[in-house]
Write a protein that binds this DNA or RNA. Structure first.
Lengths: 234, 234
DNA sequence: ATGCCATTTCGATAAGTTATGGAAAGTCTC
DNA sequence: GAGACTTTCCATAACTTATCGAAATGGCAT
């Protein structure tokens, strides 16, 4: 039951050559590529097996269900939550901190291997395995609302319900990541950076008392993110 | 090849009683109920057949593919586009017109039998059958952007790129309908009316030069919608 | 009446999906 | 070498969408 040896030589050999590295990581790598290309539901276990160099049924030795591959994939992607936690308690204007959090979250949604809604769909069907997904989302929402509240209380933001504002801000991120991932025919298509900027700009423009501050806030947010990023693990 | 008789008596009789009305409509009705309850992907043709009172394979006489049921379902739901077309050319302040369009679109997304993203997913896999879906979306986007442009040119809205603003506004609608449909654990849950208000409020708050006008705009938008609604077919 | 045709349904079945169980084929330890 | 452990394979169950041809009815022309 070890199941994570780097390149163990034990066990029945594969018909098609030995695995390059850790079979588990290899499977996740190949599955991710396929998910990105075709989406989760449209990718079959047979295809993943073929890409990873083993038989379909052998996959079930490493992942008892297809959802478990997605789960493993999700656990490698936790970024914007840590930034939000760091910025929520940081002193200084709320505007730049909120902008940084929203922008980072949107960037992460865009660059994640899977559509947010595909994650959510699977998470909802496997609540016992994906509790962390919902916990993370609730935490991000709480931190976002907290920053909004700080801004309102400081008079920096207009009067607004912090929870509603956070819901709208995150909902906008989610709605717009879709437009980045799957541009609708007939509409302008966006880069991840453009989508993230549009989303954060829109939310801040709605909240700020002094609209003219937006340009400065963008720069400050970039500085905050940059200052935090290099020491991502500490 | 008629295939839409009200309650035709021809053909081999069913094992379980005769159909109540038009078989096609009956199938759509039962399928809709199942889609609402379980989602499109999780509903099988066998279940639809059982609900509609015929065998699984008989379904394929009325709908050659599962997607065609969804397509038929979609064609019965076209509301907010007509309102947008009517309001785009109407004189008067842009704020109330934009609010009315966004609110009506959000309400429609919330009350539609299926999640917007499920529609989109299927539409993307069957572009030849769902061209109307993308056409409608592009039209709604164009009309929304046009109203925004009118507001900007009249000095009623802040300077903003109309296309970006429309993308953000519709993206927010889509992101928030999800929160109505599938409330995330740990977060406040919303009614359709609350979600629609939150979305339209947010977009207008971001665009308006005079924030204080928002309350009046809400009332004016409701009046516009009410004035237009009773004559929905003319 | 009788025969023929269009309409609608059914049963059988193909091809593909996720998932399970047991046998097989190696390495590792003693 | 014997036995245990690990990993892979094959066979197959149960379920999915979709196709095909046969069967069962009503209506229409003769």
């Amino acid at each position: 039951m070890a199941k994570d040896a780097a390149s163990s030589t034990a066990g029945r050999p594969r018909l098609s050559g030995a695995p390059a590295g850790s079979p588990r990581q290899e499977i996740i790598r190949e599955a991710t590529a396929l998910f990105v290309a075709k989406g989760y539901a449209e990718t079959t276990m047979s295809e993943i097996a073929r890409s990873a160099g083993l038989r379909q049924s052998s996959l079930y030795y490493w992942f008892a269900r297809k959802e478990h591959i997605l789960q493993a994939l999700l656990e490698e992607n936790r970024g914007s939550l840590a930034l939000a936690a760091a910025l929520e308690v940081r002193p200084g204007p709320a505007g730049a901190r909120l902008y940084a959090v929203l922008h980072a979250d949107a960037m992460q949604l865009c660059s994640a291997p899977l559509d947010f809604y595909e994650f959510e769909r699977v998470a909802r069907s496997q609540p016992q395995n994906f509790g962390a997904f919902f916990d993370d989302y609730a935490a991000l929402h709480r931190l976002t609302a907290s920053i909004v509240r700080q801004g309102v209380e400081a008079g920096e933001f207009q009067a607004a319900d912090p929870e509603d504002a956070a819901t709208a801000a995150l909902g906008l991120n989610e709605g717009l990541q879709r437009h980045y991932r799957q541009p609708l025919p007939g509409l302008r298509s966006y880069t991840a950076e453009q989508v993230s900027g549009l989303s954060a700009d829109t939310t801040l423009a709605r909240l700020l008392v002094m609209q003219a501050d937006l340009a400065d806030i963008r720069a400050d947010a970039a500085a905050l993110t940059a200052a935090w990023n290099p020491t991502a693990e500490s």
